[in-house]
Design a protein around this nucleic acid. Structure first.
Lengths: 333, 333
DNA sequence: TTCACGAGTGAAAACGTTGCCACAACACGG
DNA sequence: CCGTGTTGTGGCAACGTTTTCACTCGTGAA
């Protein structure tokens, strides 16, 4: 900065004002400083400016795993939103660390970030409070907690819509494959199951759900169990696409044709769903990320109230894995 | 830090020493300070420490797109490696910005990062030099440039191995589907084609390649063209899995059975490849990321020489989309 | 002419660390 | 008993910004 000041023949204060876009600088001087900075390809040190302003210009994003498709897409949205506001994105992957006592302290968040965004972390009330201790706004993605800033989808409504789609096609034996990791099931997991069950109940049908470990294997096993019933379902809704993919594999191996003999539906609109022509529920993770990023920026600027909650829409993506049951003409969907 | 010092009854210097793990502090005092810091759940401000040490404790990772599967996985590896060294990860997605003149300056890298890792950016020599201007080590992932620190796979060898696999099965009419975006083709794209061509030549067979736009659509079109030949290939190698998925779709629509009538092979071991039971070439992106991260840490510590190049192995993943051509008994593969 | 005012500018004090130097206390060999 | 290290500790000047305050101009009103 010293160099820029010298080159432009002004003081440090003036350079600082120009680079921050602060008012009170003669237009002519402003241009001169701007040019000097460009020529030296000078960028302010966020370290130093943060030291005095207390703002770091960085937002921490906490995700459980980076490998999974959903997080990459959500991160892309967050990244784009933050760039609009000239904020940098710090990414923390807390896979196994999560289990550790006080994992929140393992991350150097304290004065190193302006805000924290958690994605699909299903935080407990206590974990939220610990993150509050960091002293910066907390934005929850994929989780809705009262009084807290969050962006989420209505998993109940999504699953209900999917169930209705199958019912409208004329199916009556509609089963559901859900997931549970040990004894713990995530919020979205519970809500999707509830959406399915309430819709079935409202149609006067009894729900039929099989809960297995998440992932492809879980889907395979669950579908195997469903097929071995003396009167198998004619339609199956999976809690998410990966489960549906596993189910699909079992169906292929068993020679059950989709959708001719059985309709299969997923949830998430995972990349691979398109490949298998799987009807599913889209939840627009990119837009969710974008919204969360903008919300964060808003909260930081004070233009958005803390505690604002945004519900993102879900949408059924019709492909060719669902159809009216054999020998029936379904109602128009 | 003032607070911690007061609580422990020592000076700022001592607290700083303890928190940095610097030597020259009585064990008893060290414990006392440690406890005081814990009680206040105090974390040093990287901003302030970076100001004086010149190290930021952060590494910038530059990727073209975050949505794509590969980058999420690679990022996971990088993230894990950086955490081992207590470094934070800044992620920059430079999708469309890339096209802009001087995009490197749009990122506040100058004194805000200790190193820069680029993933699959296929940087030109000039872009490399501009990133050098940032004044921190540059590590290239998925690209090998002489004299530069890099982690990459041998695309030529990978494609050659895949081609040999098909030849060993007994195929002689082996086609290749490649990609090109306009007139520009990436380094890995060129190398894979070369690997295929040289292996075919060595076997005394003439190469047969179709180049289309990348992605599923390109694969669909290319496979359509191949099938319309008066004497179609019995095996097809795709430049990457997404192309293979497109090709697979065309095959399904045309009623060509895989692998009975045609063997199909991909490259990347994309998540979706497992779903379609696609034989492919694995390139272990997680390990690539992990290695790149560790390499970066090494360069920063001075334990690894700048300019070190690491070649990651590729491995053929045998699934059920390749087999000996109809009516033949292939050699043992 | 004098005075008040605003706009543009520079000087200097923060911000929270680290690194260097000085200093005290103590042990040890002569 | 005196030098000579050695070990642990505190003081203070950086680091590169922003912010506050004071200063110097013109400019227009009294």
């Amino acid at each position: 900065m010293r160099d820029v000041a010298d080159r432009a023949g002004v003081s440090l204060s003036t350079v600082s004002r120009v680079l921050r876009g602060a008012p009170g600088v003669a237009p002519q001087v402003r241009r001169r400083v701007q040019r000097a900075a460009d020529e030296l390809s000078y960028v302010v040190s966020r370290n130093a400016s943060g030291l005095v302003t207390g703002r770091t210009g960085r937002v921490a994003v906490i995700v459980p795993f980076l490998q999974e498709w959903y997080f990459g897409v959500a991160l892309a949205g967050i990244s784009d939103a933050l760039r609009e506001a000239d904020l940098d994105m710090l990414v923390y992957q807390v896979g196994e660390i999560r289990a550790r006592e006080g994992w929140t302290r393992a991350l150097p968040l304290r004065r190193n970030t302006d805000a924290v965004i958690t994605v699909s972390m299903d935080l407990s009330e206590e974990e939220c409070r610990r993150l509050d201790d960091v002293g910066v706004p907390l934005v929850l993605v994929g989780q809705c907690e009262r009084e807290r800033t969050s962006v989420y989808i209505d998993n109940r409504a999504g699953a209900a819509g999917a169930t209705r789609h199958l019912l409208n096609l004329g199916h009556t034996r509609v089963a559901y494959i859900g997931s549970r990791n040990g004894s713990w099931s995530s919020g979205s997991s519970r809500h999707r199951l509830e959406g399915y069950e309430s819709t079935m109940a409202r149609a006067g049908l009894s729900p039929w759900s099989v809960i297995r470990a998440p992932g492809i294997e879980g889907g395979e096993l669950a579908m195997g169990e469903l097929l071995s019933d003396h009167d198998p379902p004619t339609a199956v809704l999976a809690e998410f696409d990966t489960i549906a993919l596993g189910a699909h594999r079992t169906l292929r191996r068993s020679g059950v044709r989709v959708p001719t003999s059985l309709s299969l539906m997923g949830f998430d609109n995972h990349e691979a769903a398109a490949v298998l022509d799987l009807t599913t529920v889209d939840q627009a993770p990119y837009d969710t990320g974008l919204t969360a990023g903008r919300l964060t920026v808003g909260v930081l600027n004070g233009t958005t109230e803390r505690g604002t909650q945004v519900e993102m829409p879900t949408q059924i993506i019709l492909r060719h894995s669902t159809a009216a049951p054999r020998g029936t003409r379904g109602l128009s969907s």
